[in-house]
């Protein structure tokens, strides 16, 4: 530390970057350490993981991955449920919020602002404040214990932010385009389908990623709604697996690694959209 401070004072641009670099690297190692522990943990035998939890595997083994992904493995069921729930939530949110966004941005009608504010108000409500009556509501509709219970509730809670984003984006689409379209005889729906939809691709990507990550990581809602382990999503599955095999930490690590992989893939390939999406709620003002 002393050394880098000395170099910093010299104010040579390259050496200054070195000071920053070493400090960043130090923090990076701290931040990376838990990830490293999981990554390598899955490749160890149980005995090795417990005797040397943080060292490199010797030898590397795929035993725990085989146990989890193999024929009797528990992973695929949870994976399917997570994908199923995420896919339908994304689809429903996109359809509902884009449709509402079109009306709220491109059609003049009385009460439009009130209706917009009604939806946006939803951003004030954290899920936890509604969770008990929500459970009763779903029970009343016979949706408890079903994946669609989770899907519908998740969709509803994702609508405010999505409607906010889409309405804001649609407003920016030029009125001239709409006029040109209507001169050619196209109504609002034609305009939406032929012009607005293709223009919205980047916004759709952003919203999709927000919902995907939220749905993939959601725990409280499926915990309340789902009661059969066959329906469990990955977060519930990990928790249950961990409770059942308390000492099989190598398998738990392998389980965690594969469950995070899809998100890691999205994150590193579409980082721009992910970061934009996850901070979108922050700039609502």
């Amino acid at each position: 530390m002393k050394e880098t401070a000395g170099i910093t004072r010299m104010k040579r641009p390259s050496s200054f970057a070195w000071g920053k670099f070493s400090l960043s690297l130090f923090f990076a190692l701290l931040m990376f350490f838990p990830l490293y522990t999981v990554l390598i943990g899955g490749f160890k035998t149980k005995g090795q993981l417990l005797s040397d939890p943080f060292g490199l595997p010797q030898p590397w083994t795929l035993e725990s991955y085989r146990a989890i992904l193999g024929k009797s493995g528990v992973f695929w069921g949870f994976f399917f449920n997570s994908v199923f729930i995420a896919a339908f939530t994304i689809l429903l949110v996109l359809v509902c919020s884009m449709a509402a966004g079109i009306a709220l941005s491109k059609i003049q009608f009385r009460g439009r602002k009130v209706l917009f504010n009604y939806f946006i108000m939803g951003m004030l409500f954290p899920l936890s404040t509604a969770i008990l009556p929500l459970y009763l509501q779903l029970r009343g509709l016979h949706l408890t214990g079903t994946r669609f219970g989770v899907i519908l509730a998740q969709t509803a809670f994702n609508l405010p932010l999505s409607i906010f984003i889409f309405t804001g984006f649609f407003r920016e689409i030029s009125k001239d385009l709409q006029d040109a379209c209507s001169i050619d005889g196209g109504g609002i729906l034609t305009f939406a389908w032929k012009i607005m939809l293709p223009l919205s691709a980047p916004v759709i990507a952003t919203v999709t990623i927000i919902i995907l990550i939220q749905s993939w990581n959601q725990f409280l809602l499926p915990l309340l709604v789902l009661d059969d382990a066959k329906m469990y999503t990955i977060p519930l599955g990990v928790m249950q697996f961990q409770g059942q095999f308390t000492t099989a930490w190598n398998q738990i690590m392998a389980f965690i690694t594969i469950s995070v992989l899809p998100m890691a893939f999205f994150y590193f390939t579409m980082q721009k959209y992910v970061v934009k999406g996850l901070t979108a709620g922050a700039v609502k003002g």
Partner: peptide
Amino acid sequence: FLVAPAFILFTTFVVLPV
């Protein structure tokens, strides 16, 4: 047609429970 789906879902599963 455009607003009803969002309105119904949002009202049923967010506003009413709150």
